[in-house]
Computed example of a mutant assay.
Amino acid sequence: MEKVIENFIAYMREAKKASQNTEISYERDLKKLARYLRKQKIMDFSEVTKTDLQGYLKELQKENLALSTISRNIASIRALYHYMIRTGKMQEDPSETLKPPKLEKKMPEILSVEEVDRLLKQPNLNTPKGIRDNAMMELMYATGMRVSELIHLQITDINLQMGYVICHDSEKERIIPIGNVSRNAILQYMEHSRGFFVKNKKESSLFTNCSGKSMSRQGFWKVLKGYAVDAGIHRDITPHTLRHSFAVHMLQNGADVKSVQEMLGHSDISSTQIYLGMNVARMRDVYMKAHPRH
């Protein structure tokens, strides 16, 4: 079974261009499966039945592993058997009925309106870097776009006169309106800051790093973390925290779910509805604190 795992990992690396972390996870999960199968006197992956795999799944559950770990193990097993069928080593897939456990959706971390306000006041608007950072954070909070969408914006994606931005996700484009605060922040950046960083006139990225190259995810994350510390926000916030905060604050101020779904670029409205639960939780908290007869 070791040889099969070795060949499978090589296939994932060369044909599927799997990352090193993915390779390590697959190898660890499948070696664990192999150890279990040997205890069951099964010496070849091709001898495994659906019942054998269901038994293994029960063993994983007995170990009180995290649901995400069990789900990853199932993904590793299914990938192995897809490979074995593809290469003609098996005719039927015993893993096809394995279903990952349902993962509980965690409530995303959000900032209060007051915390966002403190955060957005941190950049020094007397420096090119501060002007750039202010424009990036204001735009992200104004639109709820993903960090990957923010850093891939081109100059041509912003229409300041009409007040909107064209956002590109993996499947389609969407147009998101921007308010005057964000619009003015970008205008200041374009007039007084971008030229400080960008020396190559052919560079079309809207936001760049200090070397004039397109801003990276890590670069923006470091910018955000630094200002969060300066603002006295000690929680572990990420760029996605601004996206979550945008969604909740929009709903709290009366936006309908469908509009927020479109602005966030969610294909399924159930992804947006999680924010409604947070809105209700906040309203209950406000009620309990403020109503005289709670």
Rank of each mutant, 00 (worst) to 15 (best):
G226C: 06
T87M: 13
G130L: 07
Q40C: 10
M288G: 06
S193W: 06
V116A: 05
Q252Y: 00
V181K: 14
S270R: 10
H249Y: 05
V198K: 04
S193D: 05
M215K: 01
A228W: 01
Y26E: 00
R35L: 14
Q154P: 01
G265S: 02
K222M: 12
P94G: 10
A255T: 05
G277V: 07
T22C: 10
Y189D: 07
K16D: 03
I42R: 03
K202Y: 11
K222W: 03
N64S: 13
A15C: 07
Y81E: 04
S76E: 03
E23K: 11
S245Y: 02
A247V: 08
R38S: 12
R72G: 05
L242W: 04
L98V: 11
R194W: 08
K121F: 02
E138A: 09
S19T: 13
N7V: 03
V165T: 09
Y287K: 02
I5T: 11
M136I: 13
D29Q: 04
S211D: 11
H168N: 12
T51W: 03
L30K: 06
S68F: 04
N184E: 15
E6C: 01
A290T: 15
V4D: 06
K172N: 15
M1K: 10
S148H: 09
E27I: 05
G163E: 10
T241S: 07
I175K: 13
S193Q: 05
F246M: 10
F246W: 07
A231Y: 12
K41N: 15
I178T: 05
I85M: 15
A75K: 04
R243E: 01
R35E: 15
T97C: 06
Q252N: 15
E109F: 04
N7M: 10
E262K: 01
A34H: 09
D169L: 05
I274S: 03
K50D: 14
A142Y: 06
I274C: 05
Y83H: 03
T87A: 03
G254Y: 02
C167D: 02
V181H: 11
A18T: 11
Q188V: 00
S205V: 10
K32F: 11
E47W: 07
E27A: 10
E171K: 15
L139V: 11
E6M: 08
R72V: 09
Q273A: 08
S95H: 07
D169T: 11
M215G: 00
G226M: 02
E109M: 14
Q154C: 02
I175L: 14
E96P: 00
T69Q: 06
E203R: 05
D285H: 12
E92V: 13
Y164P: 00
P108V: 12
E115V: 09
V286Y: 11
H82L: 13
M137G: 00
P123T: 10
E203V: 14
D133P: 01
R13Q: 15
E23F: 03
L264I: 09
N124W: 03
H234N: 15
D169K: 07
Q188G: 14
L251C: 03
P292R: 09
H291W: 08
L103G: 12
P101Q: 09
T69C: 03
R243V: 12
S170F: 06
Y275C: 00
S204A: 15
R174W: 01
P292M: 08
L206P: 00
G163Y: 05
V223G: 02
